[in-house]
Design a protein around this nucleic acid. Structure first.
Length: 289
DNA sequence: AGGTGGACCCGAACGC
DNA sequence: TGCGTTCGGGTCCACC
């Protein structure tokens, strides 16, 4: 499940491989990938383009060409990109596209479930397309808890559903939502607009910490995601709750539980993340300020 | 209008 | 063992 950390890892790896390179030929084998454009049309439009920059916005990888057009690649669930320096690429029944570069390198796009999308936009279309779908970048230095608070205000949906909404904050998916909520000690079913200032700040910190950790580990490999050289991420070893049902919470030892929130598998520590927090025990002789 | 649930897809995991 | 069924995940879209 590629989310922001996986896409950012991919971006960093592809940048030195693609910047300055020209797409010599492009083949697209799956019409779903290019839709609504025809595979042949998109492939033709991409052929000959020279890459100026490799960017990222939320879970979109942005390949910017020197004529200002941008290819938006969304891996959805099972997409991945591989690079080979020499054209000795292995057979792959799930390869959906293939790019040959002007230095002899090849880039293959693989997607078992065929949810991924490639879309080529002009400079006049790009910002509108992204801004209609995505909220702020959570790792930007300018991103603060107040901005998160505005996005959550007046929303009566469960907190986790709000975080998964890409317009609330860009790039957080099911894995990092659970990790962020555990870090913030917040129950995923809390009403999104119902957080106090301390809780909001904890959530803001939790989201950023979980994403940063993911990037530091070069993402998480569960089934399909891998880096362009085929190397797997390491973040899955560091999950605090995701997929860890029945294992002890590292903070308190309580067993992690699985439930369904917003239609998604959801893992929480039932002690650390309570829907109606029990009052902190009063210590005899003094009260908390 | 915001929230919810189904559709898309297909391998893996599960149940009998 | 082998078969059929269910599940999951991000996003869009129809529906309430």
């Amino acid at each position: 499940m590629p989310e922001l950390p996986e896409i950012e890892t991919l971006r960093r790896a592809l940048e030195p491989l693609l910047v300055g390179r020209r797409f010599e030929t492009v083949e697209i084998f799956d019409r779903r990938l290019s839709a609504p454009a025809e595979p042949r049309t998109l492939a033709g439009e991409l052929s000959g383009g020279r890459v100026q920059r490799v960017g990222r916005r939320g879970k979109y990888l942005l390949v910017e060409f020197d004529d200002e057009r941008t290819l938006l690649v969304h891996l959805r669930m099972s997409g991945s990109l591989r690079h080979w320096a020499r054209a000795a690429l292995p057979e792959d029944p799930y390869r959906r596209a293939l790019i040959s570069l002007d230095d002899g390198g090849m880039v293959g796009y693989r997607d078992v479930r065929r949810f991924g999308t490639w879309r080529l936009l002009g400079p006049d279309e790009l910002d509108g397309y992204l801004d209609a779908r995505l909220g702020p970048e959570p790792l930007e230095a300018s991103y603060g808890a107040a901005e998160l608070g505005v996005a959550l205000s007046r929303r009566r949906t469960p907190l986790k559903a709000a975080i998964l909404d890409q317009r609330t904050v860009a790039g957080v998916g099911n894995i990092y939502a659970d990790e962020a909520l555990w870090r913030a000690r917040l129950h995923p079913r809390r009403e999104a607009a119902g957080l106090d200032a301390d809780e909001l700040r904890a959530l803001w910190r939790g989201i950023r910490a979980a994403l940063r950790r993911g990037i530091a580990c070069q993402g998480s490999t569960l089934r399909d995601y891998a880096q362009p050289d085929g190397q797997e991420g390491r973040m899955q070893r560091e999950f605090k709750v995701y997929g860890r049902g029945g294992e002890p919470c590292e903070r308190c030892g309580t067993l992690i539980e699985r439930s369904v929130v917003a239609g998604r598998g959801t893992w929480t520590c039932p002690a650390c993340q309570q829907l109606t927090p029990t009052r902190a025990p009063v210590v005899a002789g003094r009260s908390r300020s």
